[in-house]
C-alpha cells in the first residue's frame, strides 16, 4: 500500500500539491483525474521520489519513500513519465533490458533474459524487438516503455499520461494492458489520465485533484456523476450508461 500523508509541494511559493492525503490500495488500478495544473503529475513524481516534497510523508509498504535505498525502491516501484519519449537509437530489446538494471546492474543473468523475453511477449513486441525506438510509431514506443516496466517487475507501476499523443486504437490497447497488469500479475497501477471515460472504464478507484488538493475520490460509479464532475471541472457533463460503463459526454454544451 502507498500512503500519502499531508504532502505539500510548492514551486515559486505556490503550492502545486497542497496538503494531500490519500491511500493507494494494492492490486488496484487507480486513476488521477482533474483539470490542467491540478497537481496530478507532480503528486506522481513526489510519490515515486522523482521530486522532493516540501512537507508530509509518503509511505511505501509502510516505509517513508526517502528512507528507501534508491536501488531497492527501483525493485518496488516504477514510474513512466511522458518525457521518456525522446529520439534515441536504442532497440526495443535494449530498452526493455534496462528494466532489469535494478537487479542485474548491467550483467544480465539467464533469469533476467527470460524476464525480458516475457515482457516483450506480454506487450506483443516480438517482431519489433530489434527495431530502433526512433523507427516506431507513438503507440509502439509507449508499449516498449511499458514492457520495460513489466521487466522491472515492480509491485507498483506509476504512469504519467500514458495515452498522450496516442490515437483511439492505441489508447484502448494501452489501457487494456494496464488493466491486465493488475488483474493477471497483481500489480498496483496508478495512472494520470485526462480522459474521464478511460478512467471510468478501466480503473477501480478514481482520485480527482483540483488546485493541488484531492477534492473527491471513489469508484467510477461514484465519480462519473454530473454533480461530481461539475465540482471537478466546472462543466455540466451529462452521464450516460453504455454497456455497463458510465460515460461522461463532454464534447459540446448539452445543457441548453
Amino acid at each position: 500500500m502507498i500512503e500519502v500523508r499531508n504532502v505539500t509541494k510548492s514551486y515559486g511559493g505556490k503550492a502545486v500539491v497542497d496538503n494531500v492525503s490519500l491511500d493507494i490500495h494494492k492490486g488496484k488500478v487507480t486513476s488521477f483525474i482533474g483539470p490542467n495544473g491540478a497537481g496530478k503529475s507532480t503528486l506522481l513524481s513526489v510519490i515515486s521520489r522523482l521530486s522532493a516534497k516540501d512537507a508530509g510523508q509518503v509511505l511505501i509498504e509502510g516505509r517513508e519513500v526517502g528512507a528507501w535505498d534508491s536501488g531497492q525502491l527501483a525493485q518496488a516501484i516504477s514510474i513512466l513519465k511522458q518525457s521518456n519519449q525522446i529520439g534515441v537509437r536504442l532497440t526495443v530489446k535494449e530498452l526493455v533490458s534496462f528494466g532489469r538494471y535494478p537487479y542485474s546492474k548491467g550483467r544480465l543473468t539467464a533469469a533476467d533474459r527470460e524476464m525480458i523475453d516475457q515482457a516483450i511477449a506480454y506487450l506483443e513486441l516480438g517482431e519489433l524487438q530489434d527495431k530502433y525506438l526512433d523507427q516506431l510509431s507513438g503507440g509502439q514506443n509507449q508499449r516498449a516503455f511499458i514492457a520495460m516496466t513489466v521487466a522491472q517487475n515492480t509491485d507498483y507501476v506509476l504512469l504519467d499520461e500514458p495515452l498522450n499523443n496516442l490515437d483511439m486504437k492505441h489508447s484502448v490497447q494501452i489501457m487494456k494492458v494496464l488493466r491486465r497488469l493488475a488483474d493477471e500479475l497483481g500489480k498496483t497501477v496508478v495512472i494520470v489520465l485526462h480522459d474521464i471515460n478511460f478512467a471510468s472504464c478501466y480503473s477501480d478507484r478514481i482520485v480527482a485533484l483540483k488546485q493541488g488538493r484531492v477534492i473527491r475520490e471513489g469508484t467510477a460509479e461514484e465519480m462519473i456523476d454530473t454533480a461530481v464532475l461539475r465540482e471537478i471541472y466546472d462543466m455540466d457533463i451529462p452521464v450516460e450508461l453504455i454497456g455497463g460503463h458510465r460515460l461522461g459526454v463532454y464534447f459540446a454544451d448539452y445543457t441548453k
Partner: peptide
C-alpha cells in the same frame, strides 16, 4: 560505466526510476 552512461542519457527521471545515482 557504459551502462550507467547509457541510462543517464535517457534523462534524469529515467535514471532515477532505475535506482541510479
Amino acid at each position: 560505466f557504459a551502462d550507467k552512461f547509457t541510462i543517464s542519457g535517457m534523462g534524469e527521471e529515467f535514471a532515477v526510476n532505475l535506482g541510479l545515482n
